[in-house]
Design a binder for these strands. Sequence first.
DNA 1: GTCTATATAGGGATAGAC
DNA 2: GTCTATCCCTATATAGAC
Lengths: 180, 180
Amino acid sequence: MSKEEAIVKLIPAFRKYGYEGASLTLLSKASGLGKASLYHYFPGGKSEMAAAVFEYISDDFSKSVLKTLQGEETPAVKIQAACDRLREFYDSGRNPCFLAIMSFGEAEKLFHKEVKARLLLLIESLAKVLVDGGIEEEVARLRSLDAIAMIQGALVLVRILDDIEPFERVIEGLVGKLLD
Amino acid sequence: MSKEEAIVKLIPAFRKYGYEGASLTLLSKASGLGKASLYHYFPGGKSEMAAAVFEYISDDFSKSVLKTLQGEETPAVKIQAACDRLREFYDSGRNPCFLAIMSFGEAEKLFHKEVKARLLLLIESLAKVLVDGGIEEEVARLRSLDAIAMIQGALVLVRILDDIEPFERVIEGLVGKLLD
DNA sequence: GTCTATATAGGGATAGAC
DNA sequence: GTCTATCCCTATATAGAC
């Protein structure tokens, strides 16, 4: 098994159980590798596994959502396309956000800086598109923050209510909210 | 020490470390009681401690935010007042939401139903005020959902960005968003 | 009611054979 | 590269003295 295969298999486990909830026994079962084998790929142990998963997912997000925002189309088109990527990425809200997962408890201590950096990058990327669309810089920043807050909040609601409707509706209204 | 005192002292520990991160050793230090003494008040162990804390905080929320929403003033006045209560309750965003904390990992298994019920109650309470304000029922429900999503999302952003600005701004804009 | 001491299980991590 | 077996530590929980 390649390291990447291992990472991919670990993703759902961390998503479902969180950093502290994902025990090595569980990660071992999820990956199909013995504990010792996991340490072959991740000598740093669980924190390294989580770091690898986090990086993998962050790259995935960059290649879909962020890349879409950096295209050459009009702002409206790019944002609409980014919404589609977001829906995929979060599986209509069924996937919790790794940034949120990693901002709690023990994981927060380990990954806070990285999580914050990733979030700031998203805010900035989105604001940039709005500025290109003729929106004043500070307004653009605030709207990006609001949009991201709505998405994060929707993900919380989906989890608690067992219903993807809040997420779908937020995504639906996003272009309008961002561009007036 | 009374049971209530014990509960109050446990609150910050669960808030800061989450359900799984709050070990008995830690809870013992936070409360100033030995482990065995904690079991005197909470024979059911950690889950009972968390349940007691959750209930205590939920009651607190009911007595401040929900009660405000059920007053006799105009909808605009009530919502403005509720926003003030929310700012207090969440300490301008510095306090994470217990509903969110309890919707993850091991805690989710234990408290999902209760968490969901509390959230639905909030949505309903807020929507009711909007309906009183002349807003159509379904619109009121959706606006409540949006408002709560914004608050939840803002709490996530505050945590990640180490900055209460998103929360303050969301609260600031809430009356307008809800009542047009 | 609070403590010290302890039981038991599971956590993360490692050694070393294959 | 993967396994079995094991180590050590911390976790939750309990017993029983005071």
